[in-house]
């Protein structure tokens, strides 16, 4: 997994609540057996018309935001299906950080597994960052995971919370399966106890 330490980039504003994973990557793109190549179809139905032509008004089609690395969105981002194709598409497009007042649980987990940092902030702070992002290409933000701080285009600083284990995994690009396999003795001990107490399981 790609590490995440500090990121400075353009932030794209997507002022919508309840952006669901069907919007992020529609089902026709879930037939892939790979993790890569989904960026082209990120937000497909909002981004392209029925003939596959770009809709010029959609934020990621506007010249200022085509290279966005941060997405600022409304509450309950990533609700709906568990498809990890959603963070894969976001990552493949080049976005490494999403800032919103709230995320759906499964999507939030999936981000961390793919080197994407989801940042939960109070609505007022998201509103301020959203307003700054509306200004376009000059409005870069810096996301500093180590210091858990976002620095806006006008020098404002906003701190955020992140689970310490997930922070470490992101910063060091850790493979959590490898970490868990080191606990094999504990897993075996559990299995023995479990088989005794709940033999039908």
């Amino acid at each position: 997994m790609q590490t995440f330490t500090t990121l400075t980039g353009i932030a794209a504003p997507l002022p919508m609540i309840n952006v669901d994973t069907d919007m992020i990557i529609p089902k026709q793109f879930l037939k892939t057996i790979k993790r890569t190549g989904l960026g082209r179809n990120l937000f497909d139905e909002m981004r392209y018309d029925a003939n596959g032509v770009e809709k010029p008004d959609f934020v990621l089609n506007r010249p200022a935001y085509r290279g966005a690395q941060v997405l600022i969105a409304g509450a309950n981002f990533g609700c709906g299906s568990s498809r990890e194709h959603a963070p894969w598409a976001i990552l493949d497009f080049g976005i490494r950080c999403i800032i919103a007042p709230g995320f759906a649980d499964i999507f939030y987990n999936n981000c961390f597994k793919n080197g994407i940092l989801p940042v939960k902030l109070p609505q007022e702070q998201v509103d301020r960052l959203m307003a700054a992002a509306e200004r376009g290409a000059g409005a870069t933000v810096t996301v500093d995971l180590e210091h858990q701080e976002i620095r806006g285009p006008d020098g404002e600083r906003v701190s955020f919370d992140v689970d310490p284990f997930r922070k470490r995994c992101l910063m060091e690009g850790l493979d959590d399966i490898g970490l868990t396999l080191r606990k094999d003795a504990a897993i075996r001990a559990f299995e023995q106890r479990h088989a005794h107490e709940h033999p039908w399981l």
Binding site: S82, D163, I177
Partner: peptide
């Protein structure tokens, strides 16, 4: 509960999940 594909791989490999 539902999980993502990385967690599917974690369960296949370890029969466990990291959770809060």
């Amino acid at each position: 509960f539902g999980i993502g594909t990385s967690e599917v791989e974690h369960v296949l490999a370890t029969q466990t999940l990291l959770q809060s």
